[in-house]
Measured scan of single mutants.
Amino acid sequence: LQAFIKTLTGKTFTVEMEPSDTIENLKAKIQDKEGIPPDQQRLIFAGKQLEDGRTLSDYNIQKESTLHLVL
């Protein structure tokens, strides 16, 4: 599935991932794409901060969901 990552500066980019991917995997993909170390990334979806060990499906993240990236 493709999801949108929106930063506080208003920049939006897309990442490809599977519902079974962990938040940790997602942070690694963001690092590959944007060069931001995972330990500096905080991802917010539906008002909740996402925990590394959980999966996208745990948070009911669907295709074309928008996640907010806070540094």
Rank of each mutant, 00 (worst) to 15 (best):
E18K: 14
L56W: 06
V70H: 12
E34F: 13
D58Q: 07
Q49W: 13
R42N: 11
L50V: 05
I36H: 10
Q62V: 13
R54S: 06
L69V: 05
T7P: 06
E64M: 09
D52F: 03
L50K: 00
T66P: 06
Y59M: 04
K48H: 11
Q2N: 10
T14G: 05
N60E: 06
F45Y: 13
E64V: 07
R54V: 06
T9Y: 13
T55R: 11
R54W: 11
K48M: 13
A3C: 15
E18F: 14
Q41V: 08
K63G: 15
F45Q: 03
T7A: 05
L26R: 02
T9W: 15
L8V: 13
I61R: 03
P37N: 06
S20D: 12
T9F: 12
L8P: 15
V15N: 00
L71E: 07
V15W: 02
I36N: 03
L71G: 06
G10M: 04
Q62N: 14
L69E: 00
S57Y: 08
Y59E: 02
M17N: 02
F13L: 06
I61P: 05
I23L: 05
G47Q: 03
V70N: 05
P38S: 14
L1F: 15
T66N: 05
P19G: 09
Q2L: 15
E18G: 10
L71I: 13
L8I: 12
T55L: 11
I44F: 15
A3V: 15
G47C: 05
L1Y: 11
S65K: 07
A3H: 04
Q49A: 11
K6D: 04
L43F: 05
E18A: 13
T12H: 08
L56V: 13
V70W: 11
F13D: 00
Q31D: 04
D21S: 08
P19F: 12
P37R: 09
Q41L: 05
T66Q: 08
L1P: 04
S65E: 08
M17A: 10
K63S: 15
E24A: 15
F13M: 04
F13K: 00
T7V: 07
T14A: 09
T55A: 07
L50C: 02
A3F: 15
Q41H: 02
A3T: 12
I44L: 11
K11R: 13
T12M: 10
I44P: 01
D58N: 04
L1M: 11
E18L: 14
S65N: 08
G35M: 04
G10E: 03
L26A: 01
G47R: 03
D32P: 01
Q40G: 05
L56H: 01
G47W: 04
P37G: 03
L1K: 05
S57V: 07
E34Y: 14
T55N: 05
G35A: 04
P38A: 15
G10Y: 03
S20E: 10
Q31Y: 15
K27L: 02
L67H: 01
N25R: 14
M17E: 00
T66L: 11
S57A: 14
L71N: 07
